[in-house]
């Protein structure tokens, strides 16, 4: 297994997903802070939005990365696809990571590209040996090309497969063992999938390989119901994080100590201050357990 360098310049603090709507607010903040709140310590980009040749998106990212650490979160690699990774897209990713020099780099356990094209959604995979082998190979390939360790994110899923033979946790553990990747623990995704498939989110987290977690995601979800009237939660990223997810987050940070934590809000993007308030709430959790750790030491 290759030894990947990983710049540890993302602090175990709160970051938020960078949206174009907030470029000006972020850059208008006094040096060393973000809008005076000082609770947003870093930003995460969706890689594909910065894969044009240049222009204002690059200019904004260059300006922001001069002041804040950046984490790169891919949404289009299609790591779970039956077909091979797109070499052109890998090359674009390599180029972006080279100039943007992110402190963390992550992608999804999902597929989105097929022979019919790019489907622009994070589609689910069956959890079995065949998928473990394929996903592990793809991650190894990504890490080799990009030259970074990748964090693999647990998904929100709305259905399951007859062909699954492993639990999601065993599946993730095996992929991490084979590829050397770390994990991005999306606590909202844990909650969404647990409700959708009728298992305990707390128990899931107790079984999760928390030592592999390099980053945590928090986001809001929408509520719907399935054909039988059972709750069906949708990972919409369009509202605030709900209290049960905050409670799970507390459980995670209590167990492993502070980790870089991202607030995701992609649809119905709010005013900057609303986002900053969510970040403050996560930062308070991180501060509490950082202090507890200090006190214990």
């Amino acid at each position: 297994m290759a030894d990947f360098t990983c710049e540890a310049d993302i602090p175990a603090r709160t970051g938020v997903g960078l949206k174009p709507e907030h470029y000006d607010a972020v850059l208008a903040a006094p040096e060393g802070t973000s809008d005076g709140s000082a609770h947003v310590a870093w930003f995460e980009i969706h890689c594909e939005n910065y894969m044009g040749d240049g222009g204002p998106p690059h200019a904004a990212l260059r300006a922001i990365r001069e002041r804040f650490p950046i984490s790169a979160h891919g949404v289009g690699l299609s790591i779970g696809a039956e077909r091979g990774l797109d070499p052109e897209h890998l090359a674009r990713l390599k180029k972006l990571v080279a100039w943007c020099d992110p402190g963390l780099f992550s992608e999804h356990l999902a597929w989105s590209t097929h022979d019919s094209g790019f489907l622009n959604d994070l589609l689910p995979v069956p959890y079995n040996e065949e998928t473990v082998a394929r996903v592990s190979d793809h991650i190894s390939q990504v890490q080799d090309v990009v030259g970074r360790r990748m964090l693999l994110e647990n998904p929100s899923t709305y259905l399951q497969f007859e062909t699954s033979t492993l639990s999601e946790i065993d599946f993730l553990k095996e992929i991490a063992a084979r590829s050397g990747c770390g994990l991005l623990l999306d606590v909202n995704n844990v909650y969404v999938s647990a409700v959708n498939h009728g298992y305990s989110a707390e128990a899931y987290l107790e079984g999760f390989p928390l030592d592999l977690v390099g980053e945590v995601h928090l986001g809001g979800h929408a509520e719907d119901e399935d054909d039988f009237g059972d709750p069906l939660l949708i990972d919409a990223h369009d509202r605030a994080v709900i209290d049960p997810v905050w409670a799970l987050y507390d459980q995670v940070i209590a167990a492993i100590g502070p980790r870089p934590t991202l607030i995701e809000w992609d649809n119905d993007v709010p005013e900057w201050e609303t986002l900053a308030a969510e970040a403050r709430r996560a930062d308070a959790v991180l501060a509490r357990y950082a202090n507890a750790k200090d006190a214990a030491a």
């Binding site: 489907l119 622009n120 497969f161 007859e162 062909t163 699954s164 119901e225 399935d226 054909d227 069906l232």
Partner: peptide
Amino acid sequence: PADVAKIRGQAPEKRFAVYRNNV
């Protein structure tokens, strides 16, 4: 698709519709 797990013997139409709608 045939490999999508049935729920109470039924193909989960609304669950699959989430992906259809997302795309």
